[in-house]
């Protein structure tokens, strides 16, 4: 139930006084209520749960985490003997 899927905001509009948007999930576009994301703009990524954007995805953070993990990968590849050490 708590699954949320990241998608890119492609359009913003207002309906019944609520901030709404269209969100592209890798080709599948759905409507979402973005009322809880006052700062979100077209082009930003959001995580959508039961039709509501609950988070504006921090893309810098996402990139940094991946860079960090890939660095760890290179390190492990270069130092196999260390990796095996107790």
């Amino acid at each position: 139930m708590c699954l949320g899927i990241p998608g890119k905001v492609t359009e913003l509009y207002t309906a019944n006084g609520m901030k709404m948007g269209r969100v592209d999930f890798g080709g599948v576009v759905k409507e979402a209520c973005l009322e809880y994301l006052p700062d979100i703009r077209v082009g930003d990524y959001t995580i959508v749960h039961v039709g509501f954007g609950i988070s504006q995805l921090d893309e810098d953070e996402a990139r940094q985490t991946l860079a960090l993990l890939r660095e760890m990968d290179m390190l492990a590849g270069e130092l196999p003997e260390l990796a095996e050490a107790p």
């Binding site: 209520c33 749960h49 039961v50």
Partner: peptide, 8 residues
Amino acid sequence: GFETTAPA
């Protein structure tokens, strides 16, 4: 739902 769903 949990707190994830409560706002919706």
